[in-house]
Amino acid sequence: MNLPKAIADLVKAQDNFDSVAYANCFTEDAVVHDEGHSYTGKSEIQQWIEKANEKYNTVMQPIDLEETGAIRILTARVSGTFDGSPAVLRYHVELKDGLIQSLKITG
């Protein structure tokens, strides 16, 4: 599967539990929506993923990538130390200038 660089880098950073590299996949004013919460900007995104990594040890295995207009939807099998692992999640990604502008994670 040929993933856009920012998405491929995001998966790699997640699998390496590298919160700095993960945050660097996003624009300065990017927004992440996950589990009913929003995180804005690289600093908040880095803090969110660092806490999530410590709690859940999540790794991603991309399954499919679709494009719907400006949105790319990555379907991935996600496993870690959370109830229901593994789970299939959908990552709704909007890119801007080669980086992620917005990310919404759904089940």
Score class of each variant (00 low, 15 high):
residue 15 D to K: 09
residue 16 N to G: 07
residue 16 N to E: 15
residue 16 N to C: 04
residue 17 F to A: 04
residue 17 F to M: 01
residue 18 D to R: 13
residue 18 D to W: 10
residue 18 D to C: 07
residue 20 V to H: 09
residue 21 A to L: 09
residue 21 A to H: 09
residue 22 Y to M: 05
residue 22 Y to G: 01
residue 23 A to L: 09
residue 26 F to V: 06
residue 26 F to M: 02
residue 26 F to S: 02
residue 27 T to E: 12
residue 27 T to W: 02
residue 27 T to R: 07
residue 30 A to R: 11
residue 30 A to E: 07
residue 31 V to A: 09
residue 32 V to G: 04
residue 34 D to G: 06
residue 34 D to A: 12
residue 36 G to E: 06
residue 38 S to Y: 01
residue 38 S to C: 07
residue 42 K to C: 10
residue 43 S to M: 07
residue 44 E to W: 04
residue 45 I to H: 06
residue 45 I to M: 06
residue 49 I to V: 14
residue 50 E to F: 10
residue 50 E to Q: 15
residue 52 A to F: 13
residue 53 N to H: 15
residue 54 E to D: 03
residue 54 E to I: 10
residue 55 K to Y: 05
residue 56 Y to C: 06
residue 57 N to Q: 13
residue 58 T to S: 10
residue 58 T to A: 13
residue 58 T to I: 14
residue 59 V to N: 02
residue 60 M to W: 11
residue 60 M to S: 05
residue 60 M to N: 01
residue 61 Q to R: 08
residue 62 P to T: 01
residue 62 P to H: 01
residue 62 P to G: 05
residue 64 D to T: 09
residue 65 L to V: 12
residue 65 L to W: 03
residue 67 E to A: 12
residue 68 T to N: 12
residue 68 T to Q: 11
residue 69 G to S: 11
residue 69 G to P: 08
residue 69 G to D: 05
residue 72 R to C: 04
residue 72 R to W: 10
residue 73 I to P: 00
residue 77 R to L: 11
residue 77 R to P: 04
residue 77 R to M: 12
residue 78 V to H: 02
residue 79 S to N: 05
residue 79 S to V: 04
